[in-house]
Nucleic acid binder design. Structure first.
Lengths: 252, 252
DNA sequence: TAAAATAACGCATTTTCACGCAAAATTTAA
DNA sequence: TTAAATTTTGCGTGAAAATGCGTTATTTTA
């Protein structure tokens, strides 16, 4: 049985049963579990299924992908969020990009912080609704459901009239040469407008995002003033970024 | 059953029953309470539920006042929402005002409905993210936390360039002579712009809102094309409104 | 205040995963 | 067609995840 054939078969089973187990597939297909896992890994990267411990599940459309990402490396994201939240000074105007990491930042802002937050992410706006003294400015636009952010000219236009102190960007992919890149063109445009509207730009990145690139480039690395990562990330992996002039923040 | 599967199941139960008990889940899922607790802990960290002694509750979507209102007359609101949701025809462009009743409407829209929804309410935008075929246009602006809606010139400006088929308005106060009125000036402005941007206007009102008035008048009663109320409301109470030319809808 | 229920913590066990390496299979090039 | 290069696969190892149990703390209730 050909590799491609086998993978097709896995997808069929998955759509019939809504889930597959690595162990069962290994038995049924007469290949080792390693091979099955490799298949699942490939298929997951292609977005055709959702890997979980023990096998895989159907990728539920739209918002599910967001919920999934919320579960990825939650510890690391929380560590980053805590550090990043401390960078916001009272009275500042902050542009907060959408994303699961920035959502954590919003949650970790002190409840009594006086500030203005500009965001294109409905979940972040809701999280900040509990912060009495934070003024929330929501950027409108078409809701891009995969990332739960508003995109389009409306958002970009609104950003033109905003001069923020800092901008916190959840970077999807970061590469010393390629720069900051994302998987969606609309998102790239909005992020670029956010960067243009702030004096300082803070990038938030989990380790998995380092040294990777996506299809749409937002800006070169030097655009960032700070790069916040988890304390667990090896300094060697960050050397290339530090060399480009960024200040690396791993813990405050 | 896979771990991820189990956690999804817990979330489903939670959304259905508004609460879950560790002991019940342990029985139902045939796993130890430890495991259930671990699941709840993880899900809570992801912000998907709120842990309490004995189990978990739904995450408060936002501020207390909003959550409180969501608890007021839930049956009545649901009845109204079901009727109102049926008024949306495939392919239409719908302006959906913020509010607890309109949020229910969003939730009751068919999952396969093809439509465009324009809203200034982050909770509604999020609820609609699960509807694959609904395009969501979010109106930006300053977040008015008490009602969780975006207000201000940005929202009003955006509405100027929209011609919707219908507009669904959660009315705060309704009075035959005063008209539609609300407690906040900014909200009044936005609602007026919404009305101006739609061919038909549908008002949603629980019984408690009939024959009351608030400080800021949005528009006269005749602005409404339909008034949707719960079937439990006595027709006599609605006579005055019917006399003004509205079509009363109590159940479909 | 005491008893009961619920939670948290540490630990051991089992299962599942990831990674490197070498053999086998497949594709590409000479 | 043969040889070289690439890909795929299976296995061994160690790491990580998931789970249940015993114990101790905390909260709730009577």
């Amino acid at each position: 049985m050909l590799t491609t054939e086998r993978r097709q078969f896995i997808l069929e089973i998955l759509h019939r049963n809504k889930k597959v187990l690595s162990s069962e597939l290994s038995n049924e297909l007469k290949v080792s579990e390693d091979t099955v896992r490799r298949d699942l890994r490939e298929l997951a990267e292609a977005g055709l299924l959702q890997r979980v411990h023990g096998g895989a599940l159907l990728t539920s459309p739209a918002t599910a992908s967001y919920a999934d990402r919320q579960k990825q490396a939650p510890k690391e994201k929380e560590a980053i969020a805590k550090s990043a939240a401390k960078l916001v000074r009272p009275g500042q105007v902050v542009i907060l990009d959408g994303g699961t990491t920035t959502l954590q930042v919003a949650r970790h802002l002190p409840l009594d912080l006086v500030a203005t937050v500009v965001t294109n992410s409905p979940p972040i706006a809701l999280a900040l609704a509990e912060h009495d003294r934070i003024e929330v400015i929501m950027l409108g636009g078409r809701l891009y459901k995969k990332a739960l952010v508003n995109v389009g000219t409306t958002a970009i236009e609104s950003l033109r009239s905003i001069r923020a102190d800092i901008c916190m960007l959840g970077v999807c992919s970061l590469h010393p040469e390629v720069g900051i890149s994302v998987a969606n063109l609309d998102e790239a445009h909005v992020k670029r407008a956010m960067i243009a509207g702030a004096a300082e730009v803070i990038g938030l990145a989990t380790e998995a995002k380092l040294d990777t690139a996506a299809n749409y480039v937002v800006a070169p690395i030097q655009t960032l003033t700070y790069l916040v990562t988890a304390p667990s990330v090896d300094l060697k992996r960050l050397a290339a970024y530090a060399a480009l002039g960024l200040t690396i923040i791993q813990e405050i």
